Simulated assay, not measured.
Amino acid sequence: MNPQADRPTSVSSVYQTEAQRWQAVCTRDARADGAFFYGVSTTGIFCRPSCASRLPRREHVAFFATAQAARAAGLRECKRCRPGGLPRELAIVERACAVLDADPQARITLAQLSDAVHVSPFHLQRLFTRVVGVSPRQYQAAHRGAALRDALQRGERVTRAALDAGFNSPSRLYENAASELGMAPSAYRNKGAGLVVHYACASTPLGQVLVAATEKGICHIAFGDAADSLVGELRRTLAHAQLIEDDARIAPFVAQIDAYLHGGRETFDLPLDVAATAFRQRVWDALRRIPYGETRSYTQIAEALGAPRAVRAVASACAANPVALAIPCHRVVQKRGALAGYRWGLSRKEVLLRTEAQRAGATGADALGEGAKPAKLDDVA
């Protein structure tokens, strides 16, 4: 199951303004945890939005994008909600993940998992979902999906690949194929064989953009200097799919991208049809929580996922992003603010960050991070 299907496509947009953030604090909205933190000047403490502590007066509250920013302002962590980290809870989740990882093909119930880590099923479900970003059941499903994708890419027959990946029967596989692969298993193995994909190219301030979609949603957004090369890349990726150039069908999606690049919108309302491993799904979800006009480092993303040593894996997930802008991997930079790599070119990343920062009313240094160099707003194309 793809956890993105169960969450809003633009979570960060709900908490962009101070009014929206204050409302989240007043309602103790757990969905806002990680999107921002709030500090109280009278106590010198900062908290998560869902903290159960007594509600402060609005005039004493300031908002921060990261726990590091709150600490830099001289605030201490709340001992009740522990906004800077959850060491005990993380240890519980790590043990649960170890149980699930020991036999990825096994179907472990929530009750069995809770017995293994010695906490109640209800507490484990809430804790695992909050820390990992997906439920234990979704975590197992992603493992099966990853094993299935690997087997199909090696050319194994669908039935054998399904059984080896932990599906009890081919019928069970096809019931879950759309959510775990993004397309039918045979179509995935055969590079889109039997799949109909509509696509179109258009000119933008960042050069040519190609948008491709299945009947479920967007599966590919890419920027380049020439439409022919973008189409060629799509044909190699989905070599056996039926590709249909269809400007009219793709036009509403292109219009959103155009409005975004010209400052007409800050978020997207695009249905996505992309498949990923559990970890990549978590990274991509974290990227979509980065507010417009702000950035995070690869290290910050890894820490937010409870996997501080997985910096390289975070970078790999960013590089594998198939849908530019819709999953804003351009908002991830190196620890000291350097712009690192970008699948569609560093010059485009530079323009996107500078433009977003200016339109969000932030300074270039605040948006790009310490040590980042200013960008020029020249067209890339």
Results as ranks from 00 to 15, higher is better:
364 G>K: 00
292 Y>G: 07
43 T>D: 09
339 L>H: 09
171 S>M: 09
327 I>L: 13
38 Y>T: 04
137 R>V: 08
49 P>Q: 09
27 T>K: 14
46 F>K: 06
302 A>C: 01
251 A>N: 13
152 L>P: 05
79 K>T: 15
69 A>W: 10
17 T>F: 06
184 A>Y: 09
136 P>Q: 06
160 R>L: 14
184 A>H: 12
314 V>F: 00
301 I>L: 03
8 P>K: 05
354 R>I: 02
29 D>V: 02
244 I>Q: 10
298 Y>S: 11
198 H>A: 13
205 P>N: 07
80 R>Q: 14
132 V>R: 01
66 T>H: 12
81 C>R: 11
96 A>N: 08
361 G>H: 00
244 I>Y: 07
345 G>L: 07
316 S>P: 00
39 G>M: 09
157 R>D: 14
67 A>Q: 14
374 P>W: 03
28 R>K: 14
128 F>V: 04
5 A>S: 10
194 G>S: 06
359 R>S: 01
65 A>G: 11
43 T>M: 10
13 S>Q: 12
188 Y>H: 10
298 Y>G: 04
116 A>C: 08
253 F>I: 15
363 T>E: 03
358 Q>V: 06
153 Q>G: 12
365 A>Q: 10
35 A>Y: 00
262 H>P: 09
346 L>G: 13
15 Y>A: 03
267 T>K: 13
368 L>H: 08
302 A>P: 00
229 S>G: 10
67 A>G: 15
146 A>N: 01
288 R>H: 06
18 E>I: 03
11 V>G: 01
373 K>A: 15
118 H>L: 12
239 A>H: 12
265 R>S: 13
124 L>F: 03
123 H>W: 08
232 G>V: 04
200 A>V: 07
50 S>F: 08
321 N>G: 05
303 E>L: 06
21 R>D: 05
130 R>C: 02
302 A>G: 02
150 D>T: 11
81 C>M: 10
88 R>W: 01
247 D>V: 08
337 G>S: 13
265 R>F: 07
324 A>P: 08
359 R>C: 01
226 A>V: 03
120 S>K: 08
177 A>R: 11
278 A>F: 09
206 L>A: 10
83 P>R: 07
294 E>V: 03
104 P>E: 12
38 Y>K: 01
68 Q>L: 10
10 S>T: 08
